[in-house]
Design a protein around this nucleic acid. Structure first.
Lengths: 350, 350
DNA sequence: CTCGCCACGTAGAACGGTATACGTAGAACG
DNA sequence: CGTTCTACGTATACCGTTCTACGTGGCGAG
């Protein structure tokens, strides 16, 4: 088995930093410096090394780097694959990472704190340079401990006090307020809020924040006694069951505000099944303004918080923090209501 | 800085295999053998080591493993985030990986061959133990070269000849045939196929395979002259434009078969915008039977190929291959038509 | 008794980078 | 002209595993 075969004979023939160094006639350390844009290399040497890298097609070995330096890989924890809003966020992150060396390691925790913790451990084992978490449920304490070990950015969590990680959010109470005000202006009165079940009663969760905004706005509108909050499980089916239950009751609401579009689409479906006309008999409003809202068969009024921007900013903040920033930053998007046919106004009956 | 502090003092204090070895009173190599379930350790030693591992809370460092052995990380290449079918597949993969040590590194290539190639390189840099590709567009030659370097499983590609990777597919020509037969039986005649634009004309792509089945079935039904194939771009907007164009033409089809549900939902939307009733004026059929088909406002007839099963099998095959299997295997699912209201039959006008 | 083998462990060399400490030459300064 | 500083490179320890090669003790066979 001569190793001077013509074709790159698969396995074991990877070009290493040593090959580059000898090709360029410099030390291994010099090549490493060029790779990392580190201090103390002249332009001439840099050019020489870059030429060798290109000529040989050298690519640094991520695991080897990870032993002392960075892995150039970021962990991304997502609660649920099927909610299209998370795809928007992921899209934003990908955009931010496009021109960098970073890659994304995905974890899907199915909104289970235990699974989330296990996946986070696995990410730490893999020496992620940083983590992006969405709507984490591991709790404030665990989160703080995590951020102590590894640069972290959290999307969709409103921490109570100052913390050692960055956050990216929209103003959830405001978003909920916009919904209530819009529905009231359109003529709806009995507005229910369909939220998500939580095993922990955590004020930091966005669903809870939206509930706060909803309750306040209802009171503000003089509709305090019409306040109705329902908590549905994680899955489509559970949400469906809960929605059916809600809409079949004697004194059903004339509007349902859902914590996320994904669930609102289920409510639209249930309403149609029950023969309720939207928006005549029932208004439905979602949150996130995902692409499905735009489809004519949904025409779903929703709150835009721009997942793209959220993801992009999260990635930006994380990379800054990896770069050495210590002080935490908190990015906040102002939500915007996008009105569509699903909340156009109730039919008045004499 | 005593290293016997109570709280795990962040950084640099990670427990290594050496700590475990000294705690258990054995050699580092022995611990490594236990970790890998390798040959040549007695039950007694194994128990001793396991006890130390548990006591210390030791976790192996993935990057260090990657230098000589496996990284226990798999690369997963997905063409597009927003197509919910890919979420189903990812769900299946995650299920298969749940009880293993493997994690998933995600790449989103936006159906761009150049991006896909770049991401694949990044995955190789990170020493993935194996790769799962969906609907890859890098071409047969590149694919073969890739699989030569790294264990690979490909979903939704039908290779012409025998190859050095495993595949997981559904029978796409059959799926398309089922659609045509169903629509014909329901009374539709002018059935168009809305496919996806491709930069490469590759018979291996599933969209092409479905086209083959569609054309054959149309001929079989004596509708050869009604064959109409339209190619839409990757994005929602492009698909929408193409659908609008198709449905506004003088001699518009009375049924549209879409290569994936995601696009079919757009067609439903366009139909509604144009005032066409579904299924009276127009039948719409999708592919993949994603969860959105079930919503009452869509009620979309579709072909079920079970993304869950596809993903699960892909992961299984890949792990087998990583385990040493050389011979390629090809898993094929038989597609099943799920009829819903969107193809219930045209309104007959005198 | 001696040889060879087996089962179990160990020592130490990889793996491919990064980080640190240090050497050296030329410039600036007094 | 000697000293100090700065800019640039280099040599080498080190990261935490896996893997190869080898040592050792016990045991059955010749």
């Amino acid at each position: 088995m001569g190793d001077n075969s013509l074709a790159p004979r698969a396995k074991s023939e990877r070009i290493t930093i040593r090959d580059v160094a000898s090709d360029a006639g410099v030390s291994v350390a010099a090549v490493s410096k060029v790779l990392r844009d580190a201090y103390g290399v002249s332009e001439a040497l840099r050019a020489k090394v870059r030429a060798s890298i290109d000529r040989l097609g050298y690519r640094p070995h991520a695991a080897a780097r990870g032993m002392r330096g960075q892995t150039y890989t970021l962990g991304f924890m997502i609660p649920d694959l099927h909610n299209p809003f998370f795809a928007d966020i992921l899209g934003g992150i990908n955009t931010a990472l496009e021109r960098t060396q970073y890659q994304l390691l995905l974890g899907v925790c199915e909104s289970e704190p235990a699974t989330e913790r296990a996946l986070l451990e696995a990410m730490i084992d893999r020496r992620m340079d940083g983590l992006i978490l969405i709507g984490s449920r591991i709790g404030a304490e665990h989160l703080a401990a995590l951020a102590d070990r590894i640069p972290t950015t959290v999307i969709a969590i409103h921490p109570k006090s100052d913390v050692n990680y960055d956050t990216v959010n929209n103003d959830d109470p405001l978003g909920a307020t916009l919904v209530v005000q819009h529905l009231v202006a359109a003529g709806y009165r009995h507005i229910a809020y369909l939220s998500q079940q939580m095993n922990i009663n955590d004020k930091a969760m966005v669903t809870r924040q939206r509930e706060v905004g909803y309750r306040a706005a209802m009171k503000e509108a003089g509709l305090a006694r019409n306040i109705q909050v329902v908590y549905a499980g994680q899955t489509r089916r559970e949400a469906q069951t809960e929605a059916r239950h809600l809409l079949e009751q004697r004194n059903r609401p004339d509007a349902v505000f859902c914590w996320t579009d994904f669930i609102a689409l289920e409510v639209l479906s249930v309403a149609r099944d029950l023969g309720l006309s939207v928006p005549g008999d029932l208004a439905v409003v979602g949150y996130d303004n995902t692409s499905y809202c735009d489809l004519a068969q949904n025409a779903l009024t929703s709150i835009d918080q721009s997942g793209q921007v959220l993801g992009l900013q999260a990635a930006r903040l994380l990379i800054e923090r990896i770069g050495g920033r210590e002080k935490s930053e908190h990015y906040m998007v102002t939500p915007r209501l996008v009105a569509r046919a699903s909340s156009a106004g109730p039919t008045r009956r004499a």
